[in-house]
Amino acid sequence: MRRRRAVVVGAGIGGLTAAVALHRRGWQVTVCERASDPPITGAGIGLAPNALRALRAIDVDVTRTTGSAVPLMMGVRRSDGRWLTRTSTADLAARYGTPPIAVPRPALTVALAAALPAEALRYGTAVTAVDDAGGRPVLRTETGPDLPADLVVAADGIHSPLRRAHFPAHPGLRYLGETAWRALVEAPDLRVQAMSETWGRGERFGVTPLSDGRFYLYATAAVPAGAPAGDPRAELRRRFGSWHDPIPALLERVGRLAVADVLRHDLYELAAPLPRLHHGRIAWLGDAAHAMAPNLGQGGCQAVEDAVVLAHLLPAGDGDDDADAVPAALAAYTAARRDRTDAVRVRARRVGRLGALRHPLAAAARDLAVRATPDRLAVRGMDDLFDGFRLPARPGT
């Protein structure tokens, strides 16, 4: 009996999760990644309860590799340090079954890659095109022979060449009006036990304790797209050095990093939802399918959900050869994921607009409204995100 073969384009979090999920469904999996090596640097990634539940559905416990330290609380503050809203992670664990955690992105990549056969991973392999005119896709690469497949998973990132090739009429990306900086620092002496985001006027600063004891720092500011970039360490000190503790002390640690260790990116989202998340036997997931603002911490979480739902809906890799089974599963995948991911994309943009308010009166009104909202209602407002992951019924059941 011939095993079905999937080729995953992109070895990011979504692509590797899809590869693991498909491998565990009996598929023969090949992951093609343009980069020559696995990432050894990078920032952090938050795994909310919905993503952790999805990973458990494919029997992946990332904490075995990444650690599982959890901050005591999470919330939003003003630039003078006053809390606008905060919630204990114990309350979140009680409500959702598990607290959110944050892990170093390279460690999560290692954990997922370790669940695959070594021969499944092909670094330094750029996919240049997918020819699906004959009913079964054939992938063209820069460095090797063509790869025939029963399924292609397009996890090729926010600038997805496969998305542009197969949805040429789509408007593509839209600049969100903000630039972001990200860095990892060591600061065990500061004993920061809260995951927080601080809102100023047109600027934000996030502090996230990671599972390995380091801190993931991120900041955003309203900056024109493509604005000249100076030393990011100096710019962060200039913008946020007078904000509440422990931000100045954390920025002092940032100052010890190499310039290359402080990541700076303009923020974009997909300007409109894709008409569908599949084309023929190609399925899109993660940023390639629904690039969104990072404001809810759900970009990577939704990619994980995509990957697990996609593999769940597809037929087993060693089942009977049914020519209609894969296309039917991909149609079900679009039906299961398109509306949910687009709702998260829209919500993330709206939250970002609140955090980026610059007018003093508008920012003050925002802060007052957030402070006036009871913490229990703020937590309840996360139910559709944190408790929204479900495995849909498979086609024909």
Rank of each mutant, 00 (worst) to 15 (best):
C32V: 14
E33M: 06
A35I: 06
S36F: 05
G42I: 13
A43S: 15
G44N: 04
G44L: 10
G44P: 06
I45M: 09
L47A: 04
L47E: 05
L47N: 05
A48P: 02
N50Y: 03
L52V: 13
L52S: 08
L55A: 00
R56D: 09
R56A: 13
A57H: 10
D59M: 07
D59P: 02
T63N: 05
T63Q: 12
T63P: 05
R64Q: 15
G67P: 04
V70E: 01
V70Y: 09
V76L: 14
V76C: 02
R77V: 01
S79E: 15
D80M: 11
W83V: 13
W83F: 14
T85S: 15
R86K: 14
T87E: 09
S88Y: 07
S88G: 04
A90T: 14
A90D: 14
D91T: 11
L92H: 04
A93M: 05
R95H: 14
P99H: 05
P100K: 07
P100E: 06
P100N: 03
P100M: 10
I101T: 15
I101C: 10
A102N: 06
V103R: 09
V103D: 04
A107Q: 13
A107D: 14
L108V: 13
A114D: 15
A115G: 02
L116N: 01
L116F: 08
P117A: 03
E119D: 12
A120R: 10
L121F: 12
R122D: 03
Y123E: 07
Y123A: 02
G124F: 15
V127Y: 05
A129K: 05
A129E: 07
A129F: 12
A129S: 09
D132P: 01
A133F: 06
G134K: 11
G135N: 05
R136A: 13
V138D: 03
R140T: 15
T141L: 01
T141G: 00
T141E: 00
E142M: 12
P145W: 10
D146T: 14
A149C: 01
D150Y: 08
V152E: 00
V153H: 03
A154W: 08
I158Y: 06
